[in-house]
Write a protein that binds this DNA or RNA. Structure first.
Lengths: 237, 237
DNA sequence: CGGAGGGTTGACATAACTCAAACCGAGTGG
DNA sequence: CCACTCGGTTTGAGTTATGTCAACCCTCCG
């Protein structure tokens, strides 16, 4: 997974990658972005917030970012995670409709949206590519909806882990070792569960021998096949 | 809500409308579509299915359509509903990634995707508009995720009803009278609940005097303010 | 009249939430 | 080096909303 598949990035259960397009955008944006200075963000620092004027597109150089919406009563829905190479802030128009907050210390470059739009307005190909990329993000968002709606805690967590593993090397083998850059609270707010349920589910998976948890933020996937089965709704555990 | 905000159409809790763009696309597509013959679809008939080659964009002339994904084990996640004026099949590339099925007898026009792409490739403005429209759909999909993840049955149903009411006259007053074109099962699969819970929740809302249910497919919103409060997570009922 | 497809209602089971306590590892300061 | 704190995590006990299963109702339609 590369460029522009940012916003709900952590989530691609079933959508095939299409590197060609992203690459092309990547390059175009890269040209502009490479000149921009990288800014550092501390953990919990906001890159942008809901309601902020959407002036820039950002690319994560290092670290990690969560994207979320807040509800009236303080509940939080995380819509995705963005990692190095991902772009965020792209779909927005006028105002940002979500918050972007660093979950690990991050280096991030910004490019004015106006420039991008100026280029895009003259370049149908870039523009069309932009369109298709957003379409892919849309597909990803829908994948998440499918994972989130209607499914048990084990299914959600298993699917989450598998997606993280896949993310590490799109197209290639899923990684065995997954570092969770986010807290249990982040995972909970992403999957629509509570931190306790996340924790319990992980220990249950560990007890079942499907994963190992050498540290709380480090997961080793021991039985991908079974995890996959669980993610797809198979019984048991 | 008009053109192109189709796919997850039923859902715009907080995204503002931007008719200008949709209108512009609407017109461009309309030019092509008006020449196309309208085909009739019976209830439960598929317009397209997951995996079908994505050759056309469709506009609903009359009736209603549900858009959904199927899981391995038969569970179904409805991703949205499309109504007259809505376009479906737009984001797809290569293959359709979901199913579109009539939930009411429908008249639907099709336009070859190739034509649209041909036009778009030469017309940066149309293209940019396409991009922005998809971006809005993305926003809508995220709104749904927010509504679906983490929330109680009452909250979801209340939000659902309000959205249906708003849909009737975007920008204007929400309708008091809402006809449910979909079955309880459809609503359940949309909101990630069961038909029994939908039914119970509706009767609870009726008992509370917030809505009336003269027929099972007809809802009258009696207390929009309170419904809104519920949708936003207020206690009680 | 009878059957089928939806919808409602009830009794019961259970997965997930809530509240609460304890744990752990990483910093920090004495 | 140890004691302390703090944020995050784990675990337990008890509650509850929602799912499950089953019966029944209603309406439409042949």
């Amino acid at each position: 997974m590369t460029a522009l598949q940012a916003i709900s990035s952590a989530y691609y259960p079933s959508t095939p990658r299409r590197p060609a397009h992203s690459e092309r955008i990547g390059r175009t944006l890269d040209d502009c972005l490479s000149q921009a200075p990288a800014r550092r963000f501390d953990v919990k620092e906001f890159i942008f917030a809901e309601g902020d004027p959407a002036n820039h597109v950002y690319r994560i150089e290092s670290g990690a970012v969560s994207l979320f919406r807040l509800l009236y009563d303080g509940r939080r829905q995380i819509l995705g995670f963005a990692y190095p190479g991902d772009y965020i802030g792209l779909g927005a128009r006028g105002e940002h409709i979500m918050n972007a907050q660093a979950i690990k210390p991050a280096r991030i470059r910004a490019m004015p949206l106006a420039s991008l739009h100026r280029i895009a307005a003259k370049d149908p190909i870039l523009c069309f590519t932009l369109y298709q990329s957003i379409a892919e993000e849309l597909a990803a968002a829908r994948d998440l909806m499918v994972t989130t709606g209607h499914r048990s805690a084990v299914e959600r967590v298993a699917a989450f882990l598998i997606t993280l593993a896949r993310r590490s090397d799109p197209g290639g083998e899923p990684a065995r070792l997954v570092d969770l850059l986010m807290t249990r609270a982040d995972i909970a707010d992403f999957l629509g569960l509570t931190i306790e349920t996340i924790s319990r589910t992980l220990t249950k998976l560990k007890a079942g021998g499907l994963i190992d948890l050498p540290q709380s933020a480090r997961v080793i996937l021991l039985d991908m096949v079974e995890l996959q089965r669980l993610a797809e709704g198979a019984e048991s555990l």
